[in-house]
Design a binder for these strands. Structure first.
Length: 488
DNA sequence: CGAATTTGACCTGCGC
DNA sequence: GCGCAGGTCAAATTCG
């Protein structure tokens, strides 16, 4: 009995470690692909929450085990971060229709086979336990038990977290048994109608079209957060560039495939985010995207955020000049594309351009996408040409290699959200199927509530403790000028 | 009957 | 070192 337990524990250890190695390798890949100068980024990314010593250990482990992992990881790597791979994937799903769930399952071996792969994962992970993964937290009003992000999840645990009477459910991505992505779902204590979904990790497998938006968005947000280039160089950012990066994450987030009950979001013709935040808490750096305060206000142009940012990697406070919300962000948010990201069923519109041809091969500049989206008009919103400030911002960013990983992440997000349909009628006239995104149903059924109180006898219901985190917070303000505060 | 969920037990990290 | 809280495991249970 003891022996079998020991073996079992070793298996889990291996599983964790294998997943961790996958994450680290992926981080390296995305950085390598951005520029020649990314070697610095690689090490910084790896070192986000680890010491140099640990980093060294990771690399040693990686090289030792790399050969065995190669096969298991190569597919996911290519699809995840290689733009051409993304293009291929997208192209395939556009040409042949959405990659069906069944097809995905055929690609991956049965769970029993891949259980061995997970076992692999664990041995590495335990050795790299200190390497904390970035998380992307999404708050959205949703009546359903869970937000439909297009992925398949399997519940593996549930627990009451301190300060919230609602149980937190733990899910694992089951599209691929070796996928390291996890999700936590919990109701907001203050407002039970708000569902808080926290994503961790990056998918290492092909995703259903309906899931790509979330995947790329969370990936981009996480990359943004993890990018030392962004967090260490904030002194070079201005109020245009910060929203520039964030806008694309937020922009793409609006394509989330909410279930129909999330009408507050899915039926909104024009969406914008009241707030998003980045926290770099000691345990897990987290990007929080708040969809719960979405509004359909036509006065988006008045949206002026207050911004505070305390970079994790720098002890130096940075003062940003006051300014209104980035015109680029404003234009993006105003974009008909933005509003039309949801079709009338609240589903993601396909990644096609107005001609029905495939868009964005992954070689187009990031800003190009944004400019193009600005050209597609059909709504009664003001059209803005790209202001000089944005051009300046783009120059500033592209001239700074250290921003490139963040840009890449944002660009991937843009790719995922590219080729939006102008509206449903136009799509139909073009002979397109707007529902290519499909809607992979959840396999989970019950998350909340849990009546078994005895299980949580240790829980306490004290008020949430004051955040000890550094944060970036975008908040709406009706003041003429935004407040850019820095404190630590 | 296999797959998915539930839930008590256990592990781990962190603060004191 | 201890206790707490978050997170995970895995046997039992439920579901389709």
């Amino acid at each position: 009995m003891e022996v079998s337990n020991e073996v079992s524990n070793k298996d889990h250890k291996l599983e964790r470690e294998m997943r961790e190695v996958g994450e680290l390798s992926l981080v390296r890949l995305v950085n390598d692909s951005t520029s020649d100068e990314e070697s610095e980024l690689v090490s910084l990314s790896l070192g986000i929450s680890s010491t140099g010593k640990h980093e060294k250990k990771i690399r040693t482990e990686n090289s030792r085990e790399n050969e065995d992992l190669k096969e298991g990881l190569s597919l996911g790597l290519g699809i995840r971060f290689d733009p051409s791979a993304i293009q291929n994937q997208s192209t395939e799903s556009r040409c042949d229709g959405e990659m069906k769930e069944e097809e995905l399952r055929e690609i991956w071996p049965p769970s029993k086979v891949l259980k061995t792969m997970r076992t692999w994962d664990k041995s590495e992970a335990s050795q790299h336990a200190e390497v904390k993964k970035a998380r992307v937290c999404i708050r959205a009003r949703c009546d359903n038990l869970t937000m439909n992000d297009g992925c398949q999840w399997r519940k593996y645990g549930q627990k009451i977290a301190k300060g919230n009477p609602c149980p937190r459910a733990y899910y694992r991505c089951t599209v691929s048994p070796s996928c390291p992505v996890k999700k936590q779902v919990q109701r907001c204590a203050e407002d039970m109608s708000i569902l808080i979904s926290t994503y961790e990790g990056t998918h290492n497998h092909p995703l259903p079209t309906s899931a790509t938006t979330m995947a790329y968005t969370t990936s981009a947000a996480a990359s943004m957060l993890q990018s030392p280039s962004l967090t260490t160089q904030l002194g070079l950012l201005n109020s245009d560039t910060v929203p520039l990066l964030n806008s694309n994450v937020l922009y793409n987030l609006n394509a989330l495939n909410f279930t129909s009950s999330c009408h507050h979001v899915s039926k909104s013709p024009h969406l914008f985010f009241h707030s998003s935040s980045i926290s770099t808490s000691s345990s897990h750096p987290t990007v929080t995207l708040d969809l719960a305060t979405l509004q359909t206000s036509p006065h988006i142009g008045n949206f002026t955020p207050s911004l505070s940012f305390i970079p994790k990697y720098s002890s130096t406070n940075v003062d940003f000049p006051s300014s209104t919300f980035s015109p680029l962000q404003s234009s993006v948010l105003h974009s008909p594309c933005y509003g039309d990201y949801f079709n009338y069923e609240g589903l993601i519109t396909p990644n096609r351009n107005l001609n029905g041809s495939h868009m964005n091969t992954g070689k187009q500049p990031f800003l190009g996408h944004l400019c193009r989206s600005n050209n597609i008009t059909n709504h009664a919103v003001s059209k803005q040409s790209l202001p000089d400030s944005i051009v300046a911002a783009s120059k500033a960013i592209t001239a700074t290699p250290k921003y490139q990983s963040a840009i890449l992440a944002a660009a991937l997000t843009a790719y995922a959200g590219n080729g939006l349909r102008e509206n449903h009628d136009e799509a139909q006239s073009a002979g397109l199927d707007l529902n290519l995104g499909g809607d992979m149903p959840y396999t989970t059924k019950t998350i909340y509530p849990n009546s078994n109180a005895s299980r949580y006898k240790r829980m306490s219901f004290s008020a949430p403790t004051a955040p000890k985190i550094n944060s970036v917070i975008f908040q709406p303000s009706h003041a003429s000028k935004s407040n850019l505060l820095l404190d630590q």
